[in-house]
Design a protein around this nucleic acid. Structure first.
Lengths: 124, 124
DNA sequence: CAGTATCCTGCTTGATACTG
DNA sequence: CAGTATCAAGCAGGATACTG
């Protein structure tokens, strides 16, 4: 699997913050997490719709990374047509407070420009 | 100045979380912030020494971005040889709790591998 | 429906050398 | 000392087409 985060020297990779950053970082990870959190349970194409300009490859790749980090759970139903649902794991739920704090901070400290504060981060 | 964070559509850029991420994101930003926070006040070359494999260009670039976001303060003394000190602004201090939370979370949830928890994130 | 497989591009990061 | 300037490269992210 492709990695989203590059290597430093060994020195920094043992830092707990590095681990957390490696999970949250990436152009879409935090948005994906936020949306899954808001939805509770969500299907692949619905998610893709919400994040509209996102590419297939990007979405599935980041979902895989999040899954392999035990942040989200992938439930596959063996039906035709296929059905896959994503939800947060316990681990995943435990990162949401970090995102909330970032949300809070951004709301209070953004210097210029309008900010949405309805929690959607969508629909301008 | 070069930007560290790429554009989505307009939709996401108004999200407060996006603003926060744009400040913290980047390979070195959070480490730089953490180190300045630990030091209180720190000179350019000392910082560079702490982050050793970092490139001149990378460091000065990220410092500039942090400065323009009003996260750090750059104090320049007109002496020979030159002396420049970096410190956190009030804004900058207010992001530290986010990093602390990330530190905490990483410590508790990291799956494998050793983790340093002395707050240094350095010196393997 | 929910993905891979390829191929491609631009940006972030870096190495190195020069300067006020 | 504390940076810029220039040049180069690696990789995250994306477009598009194909598949179980």
């Amino acid at each position: 699997m492709e990695k989203t985060v590059q290597n430093f020297g060994d020195k920094y990779e043992k830092c707990p913050m590095y681990y957390t950053m490696s999970i949250l970082e990436g152009k879409w990870k935090w948005i994906i997490l936020w949306e899954i959190s808001r939805a509770g349970v969500i299907r692949y194409n619905r998610l893709r719709e919400l994040l509209k300009p996102i590419a297939h490859k990007t979405l599935s790749q980041q979902l895989k990374e999040l899954e392999s980090n035990n942040i989200i759970h992938r439930e596959q139903y063996n039906e035709v047509p296929p059905k896959v649902e994503y939800s947060l794991t316990k681990e995943g739920e435990s990162v949401i407070p970090i995102l909330s704090l970032m949300y809070q901070w951004g709301k209070e400290h953004r210097l210029e420009g309008e900010v949405l504060d309805d929690g959607s981060c969508m629909n301008a």
